[in-house]
Amino acid sequence: MSHELFLSLVAFAFVSAMTPGPNNTMLLASGVNFGFFRTRAHILGVVIGFTVLLLAIALGVGRLLVLVPGLYSVLRIISVAYLLWLAWRIGTAGATDPIASEDARPMTFLEAALFQWVNPKGWMVCLSIAANYITPDNLWADIATLATVITIVSTVSASSWAFFGTSLRPLLKDERSMRIFNVVMAVALVASLWPIVKEMI
């Protein structure tokens, strides 16, 4: 991979990772509700899950979607349903410390990692990266470079959003403020689905 292409990859990965989307919205909400320490598994799940998704697409899963377009439609339906459930879960969360109900907990590593497979933004980013930054002549070297860059950038992004959420905790001490924040985050998560729903209708 040339120096110019590498810089382009880093810039694309950074912008894609840092801009608002389902992952970042949930990490922000988790940071507010549970703090950075308890959100670590969620962060790790996003980083590892997204890197694995990228590697799978780079190695041929993306080609399967091209050959069987119906699979992508199924993926989008599952994605919308799951994100709506997550939005409801965030919107109905209580105040921080103590946790308002037994059901309120941070997303686990496995949940966060598996979520990447139904995350529409994640699929679009991975497909774009695989299409633009992998060449047949340097397949394995390019894939190794992509995996390294994505892992580093995802770690920085996920940690930053969770830390930002944690920094807001002192401003959201009472039940009313926390509920308003959670509803806003739930609405933001639902709003992120509009581009997908628009294509489906």
Rank of each mutant, 00 (worst) to 15 (best):
Y72V: 04
A87M: 08
F109I: 06
T39L: 04
I152C: 07
S2R: 07
L44T: 12
G60W: 10
N132D: 13
M1W: 07
S30F: 00
E175L: 05
V52N: 04
Y82R: 10
L193K: 01
R169K: 12
V149Q: 01
I90V: 15
W194H: 08
V15N: 04
A131L: 14
F36Y: 15
L27H: 02
L146I: 00
T148Y: 05
L59K: 13
L9N: 04
P98H: 08
A81W: 11
V10T: 12
S192R: 06
P98K: 06
V68K: 03
I180C: 06
V197R: 10
G49P: 03
R63L: 15
A112Q: 05
P120Q: 06
F6D: 03
K121Y: 04
S167A: 13
A144N: 11
Y133D: 09
L139K: 12
L193N: 01
G60F: 05
M1L: 13
R179G: 02
A131H: 11
I78D: 11
G91M: 06
S73C: 02
A144W: 14
S16E: 00
A112D: 09
P98G: 07
V184N: 03
M178Y: 08
T25Y: 06
W117R: 11
L171A: 14
I48L: 12
T39Q: 07
V74F: 13
L28D: 03
L127D: 08
L71Y: 08
N132S: 15
F163N: 10
V197E: 07
A95S: 13
L139I: 06
V187H: 03
V153R: 00
V149I: 11
A141C: 08
A112V: 06
Q116K: 09
A87S: 14
D142C: 14
T155Q: 03
A112F: 03
S159E: 02
L146K: 03
A58T: 13
W88G: 15
A113W: 07
M107D: 10
Y72D: 01
R89M: 08
F163W: 15
F6E: 14
I152E: 00
V15Q: 03
E111T: 13
T96L: 08
Y82M: 15
L55V: 15
L27R: 01
L171D: 04
I201E: 08
I78T: 14
D174W: 05
N119I: 10
P20A: 07
K198V: 12
A131P: 02
I196G: 00
F34L: 12
I134L: 15
R176W: 06
W88H: 12
R105Y: 10
F12N: 00
S8P: 04
L127V: 12
V197Y: 06
A93G: 02
R169H: 07
W161R: 00
N23C: 11
V118Y: 09
V74D: 02
A17C: 13
G91N: 08
L9C: 09
A58D: 02
W161V: 06
